[in-house]
Nucleic acid binder design. Structure first.
Lengths: 334, 334
DNA sequence: CTGAAAGCGCTTACAG
DNA sequence: CTGAAAGCGCTTACAG
C-alpha cells in the first residue's frame, strides 16, 4: 500500500516508483509499464499528504462561508468547488454561522491543514486585525464583504449599481415616493445599496426623506415585523427597494397581512434572485448575482493569487443584472 | 515556524515541544509555560498533516454530495460540517453533479487525502462494485440512496412512511382518485414512496390504475410538461401525491397554465419541505425531513463507525413528518 | 522530567 | 535510465 511495497514487487527502487507516479519521462517504458501494472494490481492509493509535506506544496483550498444553509452561499460553494476540483484541489469546508468568534476558531483549525489559499465570505462584524493574525501570509480572497484593515484580494458584488438599477426601474414605472427597506445601515453592503438608491433618486430629482430609510435584520421575520414603519408618516411610499430578497419576501408577508397587494397596491424589488424569488406570488423583481458563477470566479481569482503571491491585491466587482417580475408594477392612480 | 524553531528558542528539544502541544502532563509546568510563550510569540501553527502522517491518523472526513446547489443537500452539508467541526474534524467537500463517472473521479481524488471516513449521498445510477473499488475498506456512510452490492452504514429517509402519511392525508380529505406523480420508477426512493402510496390506497380500499402512476425527472420543468398525462384518461384524478417538492411545484405551474387551481380544484402534496414549499401560493403540503438534523445524524453515525470499524453495518431510518399547508384541500363536490 | 533517534510516506538532488 | 540517501514536520518509544 506504499511506494515501498510497489517498488519491491516490481523489482525497482522507491525513487523509480515515485517517478512513474509523477509521470516523469526519465523512466524506461518497460519499467514504467511494470510499475503501473503493479500499481493497479495492488490498488495503490497515493498519499497526497505525504507528498505535499515533502514537496512543501498544498493541494487544498479552504472555503469559509458564513452560512452554508443560505442557498445563495450554497450555490456559491458549488461553483467554487467545481472550479477547484477541475484544477486538482480539494475543498476544505468551513461554516462560521455568522459568528466572528466561531469564524476565528474555524479559520485556525483550517490553517493547520496548510491550505494553498482561502476563500472567505466574512461574517458580519469580522475584525481585520484578528483575521490577519490567524491567516498570516496566506493567499486570501474575500467575497461579498470587505473587511477594514486588510488588503487581500476582494470579489465584490456591484451593490451600488444593483440598487441603482432596481431604483431606476421603480422610478421608470412612475413611482415618486420610494423607500429603501431593510439591512443594517452599518454594514458595507447596505451602505453601498443605499448609495445606489440615493443616486437614482437624485438623478430623478426625487427626495429621500429620513423616514424612508428603514433598517431591519436581513431576514424575513424581522422584515415582516417592520412593515408598519413604512406607513407611519403621512406621505407613505408607494414602493420599496429592499436590501435583499429575504427582506422583500418578509415585506410581502407584512403587506399581505395589512391587505396591501404587492405588485398592485405597492411595488417591491429584492436583491440576490434566490430561488424563491421566482416562486412567490407575485414573483419578485430582483437583482440577479448568479452565485454559482461568482463561485467559479472567486476560485479563478484565488488560483491566480496562488500562482502570483507577490502580485498587487486586486479588487474585482462582479456584474449584476435586473430581473423584472410581477412584484413591481406602476403606482395606482389616485 | 516549526517545532524545531520553537525548541531552539525555548532551549528545549523538539520532543518537549511536541509534548506541550499535545498537552502531555509529563512536562514540568515551568518548561510548559516557557514553550507556550514561545509558541504564542512566534505564532506557531501546527502542521496537522505532518502529525497525521507520523501518527497514522486522520483529522478529515470527506462529504460527497450529488448536488450541492440543491438546498436540501446544502442544509444537509451544513449539519454534517457543524457536527464534524465540533469533534475536531475538517470536512473535505466533493460534488458529483449527479454523474456516477464524476463521482468516481471525485472519490478517487478525496481518497488520496486519507479521510478518516466518508459520507456519500450517491448519484443516481451509482455502481456498487465501482464504489467498493475506489473506497476500499474506508469507513463509509451512505445517505438517502442505497447502493446494491454494498454493506456500508446507511442513513435512509423513511420514504415509504412519508408517502404513506401524505396519501392518508389526501384520502382523509375525501379524495378517491389519486395519482402518484413524478420520480423515476427504477430509483429506490421512488419505489419506496410508491409503496407507501400503494399501501395507503389499499388500506382505504382504493384502486391504483396503471395510468395513475406517472413518471417524471425530479425537476420542475419536466414535471410541468407531464401535467397533461394526469388528465389523459376519462376518470381523471382529483389529487396527486408527488415524488418531491420540485415535482409538485412543477405540477402547480402545469395546472395553473390549464386554469386549474391547486388546493381548490386539485390537491397536491410534495416531499422534502424545501424553503419554497412555504412560499408558494398556495403553500405546499409536504413531508418534512429536516435535512440539517439529518446531516448532524449522519456525522454522528459516521463518527461511531470510525470508533468501531469492525461493528456490524447499520441501517438507520430517519423519521419524517407531515406538514399540512393550503395546496391540499378537499375535493370539489360535483 | 528531558533529549537523541527512528520513522510516517513521499520526493529529489546526486551518483553511477 | 536507476538507486541510495537525505529530509518535509511531526511523534513516540527508549534511555538517562
Amino acid at each position: 500500500m506504499t511506494v515501498n511495497d510497489i517498488a519491491r514487487a516490481a523489482g525497482v527502487s522507491r525513487a523509480t516508483v515515485s517517478l512513474v507516479l509523477r509521470e516523469s519521462p526519465l523512466v524506461h517504458a518497460d519499467t514504467r509499464a511494470r510499475v503501473q501494472a503493479e500499481l493497479a494490481r495492488q490498488r495503490y492509493v497515493y498519499n497526497r499528504g505525504a507528498a505535499n509535506l515533502r514537496r512543501r506544496t498544498s493541494s487544498s483550498v479552504a472555503l469559509v462561508i458564513n452560512d452554508l444553509s443560505n442557498p445563495f452561499f450554497a450555490e456559491f460553494a458549488a461553483g467554487v468547488d467545481q472550479t477547484l476540483a477541475a484544477k486538482g484541489y480539494v475543498t476544505l469546508l468551513g461554516s462560521a454561522g455568522e459568528s466572528p468568534e466561531r469564524q476565528q476558531a474555524v479559520l485556525a483549525s483550517l490553517m493547520e491543514h496548510t491550505p494553498a489559499g482561502l476563500i472567505l465570505s466574512p461574517a458580519e462584524g469580522s475584525d481585520g486585525e484578528s483575521l490577519r493574525q490567524v491567516l498570516g501570509h496566506s493567499n486570501v480572497l474575500l467575497f461579498n464583504r470587505a473587511v477594514a484593515g486588510t488588503d487581500w484580494d476582494f470579489l465584490a458584488l456591484d451593490n451600488r449599481h444593483g440598487a441603482y438599477l432596481a431604483t431606476c426601474h421603480v422610478i421608470g414605472l412612475g413611482h415618486r415616493r420610494i423607500a429603501f427597506f431593510g439591512g443594517h445601515a452599518d454594514s458595507s453592503s447596505c451602505q453601498q445599496r443605499r448609495e445606489g438608491f440615493a443616486q437614482a433618486m437624485a438623478e430623478a430629482g426625487l427626495e429621500v426623506p429620513e423616514a424612508s430609510l428603514i433598517e431591519s435584520a436581513p431576514n424575513r421575520l424581522e422584515a415582516a415585523a417592520r412593515t408598519a414603519e413604512l406607513f407611519a408618516g403621512d406621505a407613505a411610499p408607494t414602493a420599496a427597494v429592499c436590501y435583499n430578497d429575504n427582506v422583500a419576501l418578509g415585506l410581502m408577508l407584512g403587506l399581505a397581512s395589512r391587505g396591501i397587494r404587492a405588485g398592485r397596491d405597492f411595488s417591491i424589488t429584492g436583491f440576490d434572485d434566490i430561488s424563491e424569488a421566482a416562486a412567490t406570488t407575485p414573483a419578485l423583481t430582483t437583482i440577479a448575482v448568479n452565485p454559482r458563477e461568482r463561485g467559479r470566479q472567486a476560485a479563478e481569482l484565488l488560483l491566480q493569487r496562488i500562482d502570483h503571491p507577490e502580485a498587487e491585491p486586486r479588487h474585482t466587482v462582479a456584474t449584476v443584472e435586473l430581473r423584472i417580475r410581477e412584484s413591481c408594477g406602476a403606482p395606482k392612480r389616485t
